[in-house]
Design a protein around this nucleic acid. Structure first.
Lengths: 161, 161
DNA sequence: ACAATTTTGTTGACATGTCAACAAAATCTG
DNA sequence: CAGATTTTGTTGACATGTCAACAAAATTGT
């Protein structure tokens, strides 16, 4: 989303949209950084990396559960899994009990891939977070939660009275 | 990017990608909220709203300057301006001194649009930020800056040694 | 038991974000 | 001043995110 160079971001005083704007820029950079790392070490998209991680934790899952878990769009996850399936990282099989569902699980190759990438991604996370001390980190996440709350209220106010 | 419903986001313990992931979710919601508000009150995209705001501040500008100002992709801004031009919100004219440049300025209609939307958008911003007290807010922005710094260092480390 | 509703997953369409190629003009450099 | 480089802006291609329609299966309510 953003342009890398630029010595001076300059003013931007009246952006009546500041948090969203600031977060958009930060998020775009974090994203680009993660995607770059992933591309450098694998063929996974960021979404696929997250699916890999979630599947590693869950052991076995299905799309709907992954949607709930990651809170991503189901179309996006469906396509993400499709790609991983084609790459042999996951296998999809029918659920005996409920034939709408599919059982998704990592293949050994998928597990290996996850183990290979984990140190890289964890290192990145650590590197970034090292710039905040423990208290800052906690407060940062609290602030994120607070903004989520604000949005919850805003949506409640407009949609369901 | 995300799905609205969902009572329980649940675990997500091992996401070796936590900040990026958390910010992605927050950002998607903030974005959707802003876009919704804008759609409800105008025909502007979020990018166009930001262009409108920047142009209001700058008075007169050109694409390259807007790119520097907002740090957005120039393709995106080029298309954003094109749309606003078609809608009669800005006018583009040739720069006398440098004929690569174009002079971009708001039309009276553009100014009016900005004034009409400002209270709405500012209200939204205020509403969200009301959930953080002054100190939290300051620390939140500081944390954002700190993470930007971390990324600066990371990029420096990899690209230009 | 069966009609209405909900859940699951796929798909197509479209909006947005990103990257690279490009043309035209300006600027830099020997 | 001529050739190389940089700046400005547009465009096409492609990745990603979002929304809505849909079919098939399960669940609910009477």
């Amino acid at each position: 989303m953003l342009d890398k160079n630029s010595d001076t971001p300059r003013r931007l005083t009246a952006l009546d949209d500041l948090i969203t704007y600031r977060l958009a820029r930060l998020q775009a950079r974090l994203n680009a950084h993660a995607v770059g790392l992933l591309r450098q070490h694998s063929d996974l998209s960021l979404t696929q990396w997250r699916l890999l991680t979630s599947l590693r934790e869950l052991g076995t899952s299905n799309l709907a559960e992954l949607v709930r878990e990651l809170q991503f769009d189901k179309a996006q996850l469906s396509r993400g899994i499709k790609g991983m399936s084609a790459a042999g990282l996951v296998e999809q099989s029918a659920d005996e009990a409920d034939s709408r569902k599919q059982v998704i699980r990592l293949t050994p190759k998928g597990i290996e891939e996850h183990e290979r990438l984990t140190p890289v991604m964890r290192g990145r996370q650590t590197m970034i977070m090292a710039h905040l001390d423990d208290l800052d980190r906690i407060r940062f996440f609290e602030a994120i939660d607070a903004i989520h709350l604000a949005l919850d209220e805003a949506e409640e106010g407009s949609s369901k009275p």
